[in-house]
Amino acid sequence: MKTTLEVKNLHAGIGATKILNGLDLVVNAGEVHAIMGPNGSGKSTLAQVIAGHADYEVLDGSVRFNGEDLLELEPEERAREGVFLGFQYPVEIPGVNNAYLLKAAVNAKRRHLGLDEIDAFEFLKLAREKMATLGMDPIFLNRGVNEGFSGGEKKRNEILQMAMLEPRLAILDETDSGLDIDALKTVAAGINELRDPTRAIVLVTHYQRLLDYVEPDFVHVLSAGKIVRSGDKSLALELEKNGYEWVKEAVNA
Protein backbone atom coordinates (compact mmCIF):
# COMPACT_ATOMS: atom_id res chain seq x y z
CA MET A 1 0.00 0.00 0.00
CA LYS A 2 1.17 3.50 -0.82
CA THR A 3 2.40 5.56 2.12
CA THR A 4 0.63 8.89 2.48
CA LEU A 5 2.17 10.42 5.58
CA GLU A 6 5.49 9.51 7.07
CA VAL A 7 6.64 11.31 10.21
CA LYS A 8 10.10 10.39 11.41
CA ASN A 9 11.76 11.35 14.67
CA LEU A 10 9.91 14.66 14.79
CA HIS A 11 11.09 17.16 17.39
CA ALA A 12 9.22 20.46 17.49
CA GLY A 13 8.28 23.21 19.86
CA ILE A 14 6.96 26.69 20.27
CA GLY A 15 9.33 29.38 21.50
CA ALA A 16 11.51 27.85 24.21
CA THR A 17 9.04 25.07 24.95
CA LYS A 18 9.74 21.73 23.35
CA ILE A 19 6.59 19.73 22.74
CA LEU A 20 7.29 16.89 20.32
CA ASN A 21 10.17 14.63 21.27
CA GLY A 22 10.97 12.22 18.47
CA LEU A 23 7.56 11.30 17.16
CA ASP A 24 7.20 8.58 14.51
CA LEU A 25 4.01 7.94 12.60
CA VAL A 26 3.10 6.28 9.30
CA VAL A 27 -0.36 6.69 7.84
CA ASN A 28 -1.32 4.94 4.61
CA ALA A 29 -4.03 5.89 2.16
CA GLY A 30 -7.33 4.28 3.04
CA GLU A 31 -6.58 4.18 6.77
CA VAL A 32 -8.17 5.98 9.67
CA HIS A 33 -5.84 6.66 12.59
CA ALA A 34 -6.85 8.04 15.95
CA ILE A 35 -4.30 9.91 18.02
CA MET A 36 -5.24 10.15 21.64
CA GLY A 37 -3.54 11.48 24.68
CA PRO A 38 -3.87 13.73 27.67
CA ASN A 39 -3.88 17.53 27.43
CA GLY A 40 -0.45 18.89 26.64
CA SER A 41 0.82 15.64 25.15
CA GLY A 42 1.41 17.34 21.77
CA LYS A 43 -1.62 16.23 19.74
CA SER A 44 -2.49 19.69 18.44
CA THR A 45 1.14 20.56 17.92
CA LEU A 46 1.51 17.59 15.60
CA ALA A 47 -1.51 18.76 13.61
CA GLN A 48 -0.25 22.35 13.41
CA VAL A 49 3.26 21.29 12.39
CA ILE A 50 1.91 19.13 9.57
CA ALA A 51 -0.21 22.06 8.36
CA GLY A 52 2.75 24.44 8.61
CA HIS A 53 1.84 26.92 11.35
CA ALA A 54 4.67 29.46 11.58
CA ASP A 55 4.63 29.59 15.39
CA TYR A 56 5.91 26.02 15.63
CA GLU A 57 9.53 25.33 15.00
CA VAL A 58 10.70 21.96 13.75
CA LEU A 59 13.94 21.12 15.51
CA ASP A 60 14.66 17.74 14.05
CA GLY A 61 13.16 14.92 12.02
CA SER A 62 11.13 14.85 8.84
CA VAL A 63 7.57 14.86 7.58
CA ARG A 64 7.02 13.38 4.13
CA PHE A 65 3.77 13.43 2.27
CA ASN A 66 3.46 11.08 -0.70
CA GLY A 67 7.23 10.98 -0.71
CA GLU A 68 7.66 14.76 -0.78
CA ASP A 69 9.26 16.82 1.99
CA LEU A 70 6.25 18.55 3.45
CA LEU A 71 8.25 20.85 5.71
CA GLU A 72 9.66 22.64 2.69
CA LEU A 73 6.23 23.80 1.55
CA GLU A 74 4.25 26.92 2.46
CA PRO A 75 0.96 26.27 4.25
CA GLU A 76 -1.09 27.00 1.12
CA GLU A 77 1.08 24.69 -0.97
CA ARG A 78 0.50 21.88 1.52
CA ALA A 79 -3.22 22.55 1.33
CA ARG A 80 -3.22 22.46 -2.45
CA GLU A 81 -1.27 19.19 -2.33
CA GLY A 82 -4.16 17.76 -0.35
CA VAL A 83 -3.38 18.29 3.34
CA PHE A 84 -6.46 19.42 5.22
CA LEU A 85 -6.51 20.49 8.86
CA GLY A 86 -9.83 20.66 10.64
CA PHE A 87 -9.10 23.28 13.29
CA GLN A 88 -9.87 22.77 16.95
CA TYR A 89 -10.83 26.45 17.18
CA PRO A 90 -11.86 27.65 13.70
CA VAL A 91 -11.19 31.38 13.52
CA GLU A 92 -13.88 33.94 12.68
CA ILE A 93 -13.18 36.16 9.69
CA PRO A 94 -15.81 38.90 9.80
CA GLY A 95 -17.21 40.10 6.51
CA VAL A 96 -15.56 37.39 4.41
CA ASN A 97 -18.30 35.37 2.81
CA ASN A 98 -18.17 31.68 3.67
CA ALA A 99 -19.02 30.65 0.11
CA TYR A 100 -16.41 33.02 -1.28
CA LEU A 101 -13.64 31.52 0.83
CA LEU A 102 -14.75 28.01 -0.03
CA LYS A 103 -14.89 28.68 -3.76
CA ALA A 104 -11.53 30.44 -3.73
CA ALA A 105 -10.06 27.46 -1.86
CA VAL A 106 -11.57 24.89 -4.23
CA ASN A 107 -10.33 26.80 -7.27
CA ALA A 108 -6.87 27.40 -5.83
CA LYS A 109 -6.55 23.67 -5.52
CA ARG A 110 -7.98 22.97 -8.97
CA ARG A 111 -5.58 25.44 -10.58
CA HIS A 112 -2.73 23.76 -8.76
CA LEU A 113 -3.81 20.40 -10.18
CA GLY A 114 -4.15 21.87 -13.67
CA LEU A 115 -7.93 21.56 -13.69
CA ASP A 116 -10.46 24.09 -14.92
CA GLU A 117 -11.97 26.29 -12.31
CA ILE A 118 -15.39 25.42 -11.10
CA ASP A 119 -18.06 27.97 -12.00
CA ALA A 120 -20.40 29.61 -9.54
CA PHE A 121 -23.41 27.55 -10.54
CA GLU A 122 -21.65 24.22 -10.29
CA PHE A 123 -20.02 25.28 -7.04
CA LEU A 124 -23.28 26.24 -5.39
CA LYS A 125 -24.95 23.03 -6.49
CA LEU A 126 -22.14 20.96 -5.02
CA ALA A 127 -21.96 22.99 -1.82
CA ARG A 128 -25.71 22.69 -1.27
CA GLU A 129 -25.57 18.93 -1.74
CA LYS A 130 -22.78 18.54 0.76
CA MET A 131 -24.53 20.82 3.22
CA ALA A 132 -27.70 18.79 2.98
CA THR A 133 -25.83 15.64 3.99
CA LEU A 134 -24.27 17.53 6.90
CA GLY A 135 -27.59 18.93 8.00
CA MET A 136 -26.38 22.48 7.43
CA ASP A 137 -28.71 25.29 6.44
CA PRO A 138 -27.59 26.76 3.07
CA ILE A 139 -27.84 30.18 4.74
CA PHE A 140 -24.40 29.47 6.23
CA LEU A 141 -22.90 29.95 2.79
CA ASN A 142 -23.84 33.60 2.88
CA ARG A 143 -22.56 34.35 6.34
CA GLY A 144 -19.09 35.54 7.28
CA VAL A 145 -16.57 32.73 7.78
CA ASN A 146 -17.48 31.22 11.16
CA GLU A 147 -18.84 34.63 12.14
CA GLY A 148 -21.25 34.18 15.03
CA PHE A 149 -21.37 30.41 14.45
CA SER A 150 -21.99 28.21 17.47
CA GLY A 151 -19.33 25.69 18.38
CA GLY A 152 -21.23 22.93 16.57
CA GLU A 153 -21.79 25.07 13.49
CA LYS A 154 -18.10 25.85 13.27
CA LYS A 155 -17.22 22.15 13.39
CA ARG A 156 -19.79 21.30 10.73
CA ASN A 157 -18.36 24.08 8.61
CA GLU A 158 -14.94 22.46 8.91
CA ILE A 159 -16.37 19.15 7.72
CA LEU A 160 -18.12 20.95 4.84
CA GLN A 161 -14.82 22.48 3.78
CA MET A 162 -13.17 19.08 3.99
CA ALA A 163 -15.92 17.53 1.88
CA MET A 164 -15.56 20.23 -0.76
CA LEU A 165 -11.76 20.14 -0.86
CA GLU A 166 -11.52 16.33 -1.01
CA PRO A 167 -8.09 16.14 0.66
CA ARG A 168 -5.74 13.19 0.46
CA LEU A 169 -4.84 13.61 4.11
CA ALA A 170 -7.35 15.00 6.59
CA ILE A 171 -6.26 15.78 10.12
CA LEU A 172 -9.21 16.56 12.34
CA ASP A 173 -8.09 18.28 15.53
CA GLU A 174 -10.61 17.71 18.34
CA THR A 175 -13.43 17.94 15.86
CA ASP A 176 -15.63 16.22 18.42
CA SER A 177 -15.05 18.66 21.25
CA GLY A 178 -17.99 20.76 22.30
CA LEU A 179 -20.52 18.84 20.24
CA ASP A 180 -23.80 17.43 21.52
CA ILE A 181 -24.64 13.87 20.58
CA ASP A 182 -26.69 14.79 17.49
CA ALA A 183 -24.03 17.09 16.13
CA LEU A 184 -21.41 14.45 16.88
CA LYS A 185 -23.33 11.88 14.84
CA THR A 186 -23.71 14.27 11.91
CA VAL A 187 -20.03 15.17 11.97
CA ALA A 188 -19.10 11.50 12.23
CA ALA A 189 -21.32 10.66 9.28
CA GLY A 190 -19.58 13.41 7.32
CA ILE A 191 -16.22 11.86 8.12
CA ASN A 192 -17.36 8.33 7.26
CA GLU A 193 -18.67 9.64 3.97
CA LEU A 194 -15.10 10.61 3.10
CA ARG A 195 -13.54 7.28 4.01
CA ASP A 196 -11.97 6.15 0.81
CA PRO A 197 -9.06 3.90 -0.28
CA THR A 198 -7.24 6.96 -1.63
CA ARG A 199 -7.61 9.07 1.46
CA ALA A 200 -5.94 9.02 4.88
CA ILE A 201 -7.70 10.37 7.92
CA VAL A 202 -6.14 11.25 11.27
CA LEU A 203 -8.49 11.91 14.15
CA VAL A 204 -6.93 13.83 17.02
CA THR A 205 -9.13 13.39 20.04
CA HIS A 206 -9.11 13.39 23.78
CA TYR A 207 -12.11 11.13 24.22
CA GLN A 208 -13.15 7.79 22.91
CA ARG A 209 -16.74 8.77 22.06
CA LEU A 210 -16.08 9.95 18.47
CA LEU A 211 -14.55 6.53 17.83
CA ASP A 212 -17.92 4.92 18.54
CA TYR A 213 -19.09 6.47 15.31
CA VAL A 214 -15.92 6.61 13.25
CA GLU A 215 -14.17 3.33 13.68
CA PRO A 216 -10.39 3.73 13.48
CA ASP A 217 -8.04 1.17 11.96
CA PHE A 218 -5.29 2.19 14.36
CA VAL A 219 -5.15 3.97 17.68
CA HIS A 220 -2.01 5.71 18.98
CA VAL A 221 -1.43 7.13 22.41
CA LEU A 222 0.66 10.24 22.64
CA SER A 223 2.43 11.18 25.82
CA ALA A 224 5.12 13.83 26.37
CA GLY A 225 5.51 14.32 22.64
CA LYS A 226 6.00 10.70 21.64
CA ILE A 227 3.76 7.85 20.63
CA VAL A 228 3.95 5.50 23.58
CA ARG A 229 1.47 2.87 22.49
CA SER A 230 -0.20 1.82 19.29
CA GLY A 231 -2.91 -0.70 18.71
CA ASP A 232 -6.29 -1.30 17.18
CA LYS A 233 -9.60 0.21 18.28
CA SER A 234 -9.61 -1.83 21.47
CA LEU A 235 -6.82 0.38 22.77
CA ALA A 236 -9.23 3.31 22.80
CA LEU A 237 -11.70 1.34 24.90
CA GLU A 238 -8.94 0.35 27.26
CA LEU A 239 -7.98 3.99 27.66
CA GLU A 240 -11.57 4.95 28.27
CA LYS A 241 -11.76 2.40 31.04
CA ASN A 242 -8.41 3.00 32.71
CA GLY A 243 -7.71 6.66 31.96
CA TYR A 244 -4.47 8.21 30.79
CA GLU A 245 -2.73 7.68 34.10
CA TRP A 246 -2.64 4.05 33.23
CA VAL A 247 -0.68 4.78 30.07
CA LYS A 248 1.80 6.95 31.93
CA GLU A 249 2.29 4.25 34.50
CA ALA A 250 2.70 1.66 31.79
CA VAL A 251 5.33 3.81 30.14
CA ASN A 252 7.20 4.56 33.32
CA ALA A 253 7.11 0.96 34.50
Binding site: P75, E76, A79, G95
Partner: peptide, 20 residues
Protein backbone atom coordinates in the same frame (compact mmCIF):
# COMPACT_ATOMS: atom_id res chain seq x y z
CA UNK B 1 -3.12 30.78 8.62
CA UNK B 2 -6.69 29.54 8.37
CA UNK B 3 -7.02 30.89 4.82
CA UNK B 4 -3.62 29.55 3.81
CA UNK B 5 -4.49 26.11 5.20
CA UNK B 6 -7.39 26.19 2.76
CA UNK B 7 -4.93 26.77 -0.11
CA UNK B 8 -5.25 30.53 -0.48
CA UNK B 9 -2.10 32.59 -0.87
CA UNK B 10 -1.18 35.12 1.78
CA UNK B 11 -1.75 38.08 -0.53
CA UNK B 12 -5.17 36.81 -1.58
CA UNK B 13 -6.02 36.12 2.03
CA UNK B 14 -5.13 39.69 3.00
CA UNK B 15 -7.23 41.08 0.18
CA UNK B 16 -10.08 38.81 1.13
CA UNK B 17 -9.97 39.85 4.77
CA UNK B 18 -9.65 43.54 3.91
CA UNK B 19 -12.57 43.34 1.50
CA UNK B 20 -14.58 41.58 4.18
Amino acid sequence: FYCRQRGISEEDAVNMIVNG
